[in-house]
């Protein structure tokens, strides 16, 4: 197990290095730089600023320098927010995004799995069709429309919830719903299809022949077999939700990490772009590792360490 984990972490480091290299290259391939503005800076000022952040050095030197710092978890200073490092930015905004993201995640898993179970059990009835229409809407309606509708309904038509900002529990509800809609729909569809498959298996017929009741059939016998694809989807989804969504955070004016994904790029804030990309990649890899560790708990035929196979 320890060897397996060490291997996976080593692999993650290699992937991170590749991510840094590719992002670094792409980033510098876009025209402009952090200090390019509509009103051109006097050349002397530009030179001083660039020298301060070592942007005048050859690209190769900048790259080596960055990797060396990144290796000790120093993601460098932001060019756009003077006096703040990328580490600061992540530390300040991640908790907000992670809170919103985790709430949305649990909402999506809970609602998605339950609705999927209902749709699978009442396959080809109006329950199923209703759920599937809902799921298709959930998958295809973009979150900004969903967010706008929620704000209109619950902040203006019936003013029960705040329309924006981030000041307490009530402020979480609307953005969490907007963020959870799409993953809920997706999880519902996944759960339904793999549960329908599981319910058609021989062991379900065996269980029925022994008088096992419907709830036990669905929950104990079919669901565990059906959850593997859902769990694989939840891994990367968790990483994506926890790092925030540009759209939802912008609409609800939430001071989260999500908006930095987009703003840092048009600011050419090199260190923030790299820092957030690295962080996101790392999170995805950790979530996938977690998923791989959960698999054997769901299905005893899967072992993490293939050499331990009997």
């Amino acid at each position: 197990m320890a060897i397996y984990l060490a291997k996976r972490l080593l692999g993650a480091c290699i992937v991170l290095w590749a991510v840094i290299t590719i992002t670094f290259g792409l980033m510098h391939a876009i025209p402009g730089g952090p200090f390019t503005q509509e009103k051109k800076l006097p050349p002397a000022v530009m030179a001083t600023v660039e020298a301060r952040y070592h942007l005048d050095e050859p690209l190769w030197n900048q790259y080596v320098d960055y990797v060396r710092h990144a290796a000790v978890l120093d993601l460098g200073p932001s060019y756009k927010y003077p006096g703040k490092t990328v580490n600061d930015i992540i530390a300040e905004t991640l908790p907000v995004s992670a809170e919103l993201g985790l709430i949305s995640l649990f909402l999506a898993i809970g609602a998605g799995v339950l609705a999927g179970m209902a749709a699978a059990w009442y396959k080809n009835t109006w329950v199923d069709y209703g759920m599937m229409i809902g799921a298709t809407l959930g998958v295809s309606v973009p979150s900004f429309i969903f967010a706008a509708v929620l704000i209109q309904l619950f902040a203006f038509t019936w003013p029960v919830l705040p329309a924006a900002l981030w000041k307490g529990p009530a402020y979480v509800i609307l953005p969490a719903l907007a963020l959870a809609a799409q993953p809920t729909a997706f999880i519902m569809r996944l759960t339904r299809s793999s549960l329908v498959d599981a319910l058609g298996q021989d062991y379900i017929r065996t269980a029925r022949s022994r008088g096992i009741g419907p709830w036990s059939l669905l929950y104990r016998h079919a669901l565990r077999n059906a959850l593997l694809p859902v769990v694989s989807y939840i891994g990367p989804l968790a990483a994506a939700l926890m790092t925030g969504s540009f759209i939802v955070e912008t609409i609800f004016a939430i001071p989260g990490l999500g908006r930095h994904f987009v703003t840092s790029i048009y600011n050419r804030d090199y260190t923030v772009i790299l820092g957030i990309t690295i962080f996101y990649s790392f999170l995805i890899m950790m979530m996938n590792l977690l998923v791989d560790l959960i698999y054997p708990l769901l299905d005893p035929r899967i072992t993490v360490d293939s050499r331990k196979e009997e």
Binding site: D202, Y203, T206, A207, S209, R210, G211, H221, L298, P300
Partner: peptide, 26 residues
């Protein structure tokens, strides 16, 4: 549900393929 009361207790069945007739995760 009335049938479920009979199944297992009054009548039972064994199936052709033992490889797929047991739940793999229990």
């Amino acid at each position: 549900s009335e049938m479920n009361g009979l199944r297992g207790r009054d009548m039972a069945m064994i199936f052709q393929d033992p490889m797929t007739s047991l739940n793999p995760v229990l």
